[in-house]
């Protein structure tokens, strides 16, 4: 738990640009929410590796959103069922169903469809909000925290120096 928190703080406080962190977290939201062995996740992993996003943030987000995704399973199923059974969208589903790539994607599975749609809908708002929050954090909160005397004392303490040398956190 402490390590996770430390990792999270390390990501927040790193030199990485906020957009790189928020994009990585948004990609991890898709991989975490949707079933791992899905065709679209291969594309997401390709994007994560090719686009310069923060990989640590991606892995951190993946472990976080996998847990949340498991809890939201019934919601994804219900939503996927609702979308796939929608009469007006039936011609689209029929044409996709007859395409090999889309069948491999398993779009007709209620959880795949539900989780993918929800994570795609959340993607852009999530990037924007996370980006804004990160910028705010770094410009105001982080500086304020660093100015507090007790934090400076702790940071300079021997214990923290030893911990940093052992775990690599904050180095």
């Amino acid at each position: 738990m402490l390590n996770t928190l430390a990792t999270f703080l390390k990501i927040l406080n790193s030199e990485t640009r906020p957009t790189q962190i928020s994009l990585a977290l948004a990609f991890s939201l898709i991989v975490g929410f949707t079933p791992l062995f899905s065709l679209h996740n291969l594309l997401v992993i390709l994007l994560v590796l090719v686009i310069r996003v923060n990989l640590a943030a991606f892995f951190f987000g993946f472990s976080l959103f996998s847990g949340i995704g498991y809890l939201l399973d019934p919601l994804f199923h219900e939503f996927g069922q609702l979308v796939l059974n929608n009469e007006s969208m039936n011609p689209l589903w029929v044409s996709l169903y007859n395409s090999t790539v889309w069948r491999l994607e398993r779009f007709n599975n209620t959880i795949v469809m539900g989780s993918l749609l929800i994570s795609l809908v959340l993607f852009i708002p999530f990037v924007l909000i996370t980006n804004y929050l990160l910028t705010k954090y770094r410009t105001s909160l982080l500086q304020w925290i660093n100015r507090i005397r007790i934090v400076q004392t702790i940071k300079d303490s021997k214990l923290i120096t030893v911990y940093r040398s052992l775990t690599g956190v904050g180095s």
Partner: peptide
């Protein structure tokens, strides 16, 4: 019975 984390594969008309 919808197995947890598996969902249901909905079938559509095939050509």
């Amino acid at each position: 019975q919808v197995p947890r984390h598996k969902g249901v594969d909905i079938k559509f008309m095939e050509h």
